[in-house]
């Protein structure tokens, strides 16, 4: 699976499930980049077949609606949607 890594300062383990076509996902990536934190992201819409189903199952585990962006923090907390204040608070920034 083509998980992309973005270098930055460590603020925990951040995994962002996103869509390459989505404005809210773009805003969330921009926020993380502006905050300068290290994170991984996966564009689920660019996957096919089995890989896509696997990614959907991973997102549904955290967010049954399987909506995007879904940001999983330290394998313990999940923020759905572009919620700037919630993301900053969760990252203690």
């Amino acid at each position: 699976m083509n998980i992309e890594h973005v270098q930055g300062k460590k603020a925990g383990k951040l995994m962002l499930y996103a869509l390459s076509t989505c404005g809210h996902c773009r805003n969330t990536r921009k926020l993380l980049t502006d905050l300068g934190v290290e994170y991984d992201y996966l564009y689920v819409d660019l996957l096919q077949g089995q890989e896509k189903e696997q990614a959907i199952a991973m997102v549904e585990k955290w967010n049954p609606d399987c909506s995007f962006p879904t940001l999983v923090i330290n394998d313990s907390k999940c923020i759905v949607g572009f919620k700037e204040a919630d993301i900053k608070e969760a990252l203690k920034l």
Partner: peptide, 27 residues
Amino acid sequence: EFTKGLISGLLVNQSRYGYPSCPCRLA
């Protein structure tokens, strides 16, 4: 600017799937 980003997403989906599905939902 935001809206043009969404419209780019719609155009991508049109060419990818043959119909302009929501850019913010997984088709």
